[in-house]
Design a protein around this nucleic acid. Structure first.
Lengths: 209, 209, 209, 209
DNA sequence: TATGAATGAGAATTCATTCAT
DNA sequence: GATGAATGAATTCTCATTCAT
């Protein structure tokens, strides 16, 4: 292997390793403090590097923020993409619901990152929402609509159904502080109860059958 | 009545009028920009007064923030308080749900104010959540539990039911940007559809009956 | 006199006094170090105030720079404006030349300020040059052209004549360091000699008559 | 020739080639942005090499600046050196004047480089001005003085005559922005008109003969 | 020689808060 | 009560220079 290739590889490794360290730190800080609340200093410190060195890898605070959002968006929307038109409607939606809940449990920072961004009015992600996200949701709404048409699902507005799944699951990440405060320290794991509850709510509703 | 008393009264009136102007402005600014993003300058400007004058009425930015949160909290929790143990369970919960949705429509700033606070980890409201809020929710959970016990409601975890109502309704305030982006400009008023959808979801569930 | 008026007056006085202090300091610093070389810190220090206080009066470094340029431009062009079409051509031009030389002697900072700006490509003053300045020069060029037409002045391009007057006089301000270095410490006051020389050069030329 | 020697030779060639590339880039950047406004990054980029590599050839920004000034100074003063005591005074001065004007046209960056340096107070070139430059000017002033003494030139201060030639010619490089703005887009080439004008001014003066 | 990586010292600007009247 | 003036503590970002290879 020629020296050049070796050099290039090592450089690239440091580059990507450092970019990843920064983005991990940025996820941590942005999700906790929001865009305005976050400081480059804190991100650099969290990433274990000097501020100017961080700015060697990213043009500025906004650039880092942008990169983190972009980096996470795909993974964040992945569960919805897997909703299979050919699967069993109840199974598909249950899986989606539970997978979203798992993500709220396992990736609360990502959830809060997006929550912060959207509450702010999505200054960065605005186009992404109106473009790719809307397209994806519209597509899946059509799937749900078809399921309803063939009588395999009770008739409900499909867009708002998706909103409801987002809202109820991400609530356990975004509003975790409140959930914990209200539930107190005792009792079963909140995510286990939440899973059971949401399944019951979504598929059977509150009215006794 | 002596002049002194009159003066005092007038001062008090100006005092409370100005405090209200400030808090209205602060609600506007804090809900839009978050705590860190908000500036005292902006609040003062929105309130139509000078910054030092604002700080004559409140000790500092945090103090204003505190006051606004406190001021709104009662009104914010009011709907839950009206949940009547002696009413019809379905009616009571429907009313609660719809009232919360109306509040998301009519008072989105309050919703975002609390959303921002809680996502940040409720640095100010922490005690309020673990104290009065938990007490209120526990009390109403007991009411729901009783309704379930007597078979007038399908068995679901009452705390998580309340979370679900909060999550699904406040979603239309906090994540309004995303909701609008996904729904696009056409179609029926989103709150009308949301009301119909949530009623259907909560009481009947997705499974065809 | 009502209290209001008194207050307003005092405020205005501090305001304008401080703005003047800042602009005097800025003239000093910008003319010495150029726009890039100047620092707000230095200007503030020279003005005897804190940096944030300076920024209370001006939006930023560029704003101060702008203000100083605007402030000086009028005075700087004043001599040219006084060129009187009805006066004696030789007298008028001699007066203009000598007045410009006096300004180079008495206001070298202003001269260098503009020199710096124009060498940089006149990023701020560009429009001013192509607009008002060009108009003024064109007008006076017409006057000179008329003097030539009636035979009271040897035929020379009037625009370039004005350039030559600018160049030769401002040279003693802008390139003072070089002038002093070349002339050394001894000898007659350089401005006295310059005045005599320029008068001789401009009106008689080098060729023996 | 041994391999070692060949290598050394090649290195030296690369060395001097790179030093020249750097200095060419530095001339470009320093003349445009001034010393403070110029960045090593920009010079390196313009030279097509990395910043650390540039700093391998020069100790620092100041060192590059120094080198460029030194490099250009000789060429810059060359026209004055050619002023021939034995030539025809009018011809000699005309040639000098026109050659300086050509240099302003063809090497405006060099002119601006020195202009910037001298306006700043010649922090680097100071000694050069008071030493070699003064000596050269004094020598040529003596030549001019002799021409005057024998009546072949009208009596004018020789130092200031040289200043006037510098000022009027370099004006077209240093203040090019202003010259263009005032002259507008139309009309004859400004250097052609300037040459004709300066010749007329310097040798005949403004007063009709 | 050459360069990717790293950093300390600024520099501009913002902002909560205080001072003085 | 009200406000113009003032400031210290950040905070973002730039840049000359050094390090390590």
């Amino acid at each position: 292997m020629p020296a050049r290739a070796g050099q290039t590889t090592r450089k690239t490794r440091i580059q990507s390793a450092n970019r990843e360290r920064i983005m991990a730190a940025a996820l941590e800080v942005f999700s906790r403090d929001g865009f305005r609340g976050a400081t480059v200093d804190r991100i650099a410190e969290t990433a274990g590097m000097s501020k100017p060195n961080l700015l060697y890898y990213f043009k500025g605070k906004t650039d880092v923020y942008h990169a983190v959002l972009d980096d996470q968006l795909d993974a964040w929307l992945d569960p919805l993409r897997t909703l299979d038109p050919d699967g069993d409607p109840i199974d598909e939606l249950r899986n989606y619901l539970l997978r979203k809940l798992e993500m709220a449990r396992d990736y609360p920072r990502e959830s809060r990152l997006f929550a912060n961004e959207i509450i702010r009015g999505a200054p960065i992600l605005g186009d992404e929402l109106a473009g790719p996200l809307k397209a994806l949701v519209d597509e899946k709404a059509q799937v749900i609509r078809e399921w309803i048409r063939v009588g395999r699902l009770a008739p409900h507005d499909p867009h708002h159904l998706i909103f409801a799944i987002w809202a109820t699951t991400q609530h356990y990440a975004d509003f975790d502080t409140q959930v914990r405060a209200v539930l107190g320290r005792d009792g079963e794991d909140r995510f286990v109860v939440a899973a059971r509850f949401l399944e019951g709510l979504f598929f059977n509703g509150l009215r006794p059958r």
